[in-house]
Design a protein around this nucleic acid. Sequence first.
DNA 1: TGAATAGTGTCTGTGAGACAATATTAT
DNA 2: ATAATATTGTCTCACAGACACTATTCA
Lengths: 273, 273
Amino acid sequence: MKEYKSEIEFLNDYDSNKYDKLSLTTDILLFSVANGVQENYRKLNKKYFSILLVKRNTYPFKDKWCLPGGFIGIDEDIEDAANRILKTETNLDNIYLEQLYTYGNPKRDPRMRVISTSYIALIDKNKLPNMISNNASWFNVMILEDKNIIDLTLDNGIEKIKFKIKKILKEKTTNKYRYEVLENNKLAFDHPLVIVNGIERLKNKIEYTDIVFNMMPEYFTLKELQQVYEVILGKKLLDPAFRRIIKDKVIKTNKMRTGGGHRPSVLFKYKNN
Amino acid sequence: MKEYKSEIEFLNDYDSNKYDKLSLTTDILLFSVANGVQENYRKLNKKYFSILLVKRNTYPFKDKWCLPGGFIGIDEDIEDAANRILKTETNLDNIYLEQLYTYGNPKRDPRMRVISTSYIALIDKNKLPNMISNNASWFNVMILEDKNIIDLTLDNGIEKIKFKIKKILKEKTTNKYRYEVLENNKLAFDHPLVIVNGIERLKNKIEYTDIVFNMMPEYFTLKELQQVYEVILGKKLLDPAFRRIIKDKVIKTNKMRTGGGHRPSVLFKYKNN
DNA sequence: TGAATAGTGTCTGTGAGACAATATTAT
DNA sequence: ATAATATTGTCTCACAGACACTATTCA
């Protein structure tokens, strides 16, 4: 082995092909909350947790749905790549973005070895202009969890994507699970897993952070905020308890939401100090 | 663009050099708890939170300390690579391992574009045979946090590694920080950041999981367990409160620890059901 | 005997779950 | 008037922080 006298000398001489190289992609879990139809002028809009998927028009997995994503440039920071992809899908900057996990199973892409770093992104759909690329679509997420089987249905109003995942306890001290895809015929790659992991992360984070406000408009009623919590957590919350928890995080404004056939509600803002 | 009739046909024709390729490494944060010297036959051993570092003997960063790590093989799962590296450092299998974060700054390695996925590993030092590679060393970790400056000292008894990191709030809703290295002249790459991120993750997880038991021997006293919590959290805990929290996680055995010049203590086991 | 740790009892305040009660609107 | 939601009051129970007290060993 040659002896180098300095780091500069070493670097000038370095052959960057010494080690195996591979490709890196990033996949984005873009989540939002959608309004359902109003069945009655008095009743509240039902809300749905929703995710953006893209229909593949090339091989591999042609005609299957997948998460928006793409290859990372050789001189591009991973997070920059994630933001670039988000920009092409939403035409928005400054979207909440958080790294989720890096998936490195050697067989996850049939073409070649591809490692993928996934990100969670959150958005208030109202801010979204309509001009998403025409192969992208928002799917409402419905989750049924029975024992250790998670049953997911994604629905964009035209098409339903169903898949099942089995959770197998892998590590006791931290309650870590191995996820096994049982049924899936419409999602590409390992994206069923990525989606489930992303939802679980969000479920956890909503409990101990203010992450939910990244999915809210500037002004909102407390009930609207509560509905977003409920739809993500997958359970109903009690009003007084919810208000106690949330009260220090929001500011009451002098605006009201009226016209609902019932007592109007005060609009609040996120306490952004 | 050529039209393919099937996925098989497409894959056979696929040129895997179509996209830029890069190298992927993994770095391991191997944490443990070390016993200090006993100053008095009656007194308890002081405990230290400790981390394994390796001295680099080649460029780049020759003679600096770094986390144990290495390149990921072209057909190797990332987690398998992490376990392989752990095995070479500790000669042990079945070590607790958890993915921390993927660092992708294009300039983090001066040689070329290298992405690194870091893992946290935890071990009970008593299980560790002495034959670690002779350029590896355990460092006790001391942390001082004042406002937004974290002041770290790593000490292996021979050498002290000091560095400072500034925390800058990056995202309010989830309290995410950007970390800026202020002083560092003994650690390679972006490893000061990785270490700080790893410690913060562990601090969080110890509060809401049983992760601590991965650093404990089979039998331990409640005070020993409490000391591990204290040394990781960086604060003293009240005995009765600690015992209340922990009591459902452990099983009392009929073994005792005697010989301390004070009341003997009962040995407990992790309730592993 | 005394220094040190091991282990328990209990008071108090906070906060979540539960449910009841009141307020206000558009049709 | 009524159906619906908005908002608040309050009881209870669980639990964490704080501190005091008792138990036990060995040089």
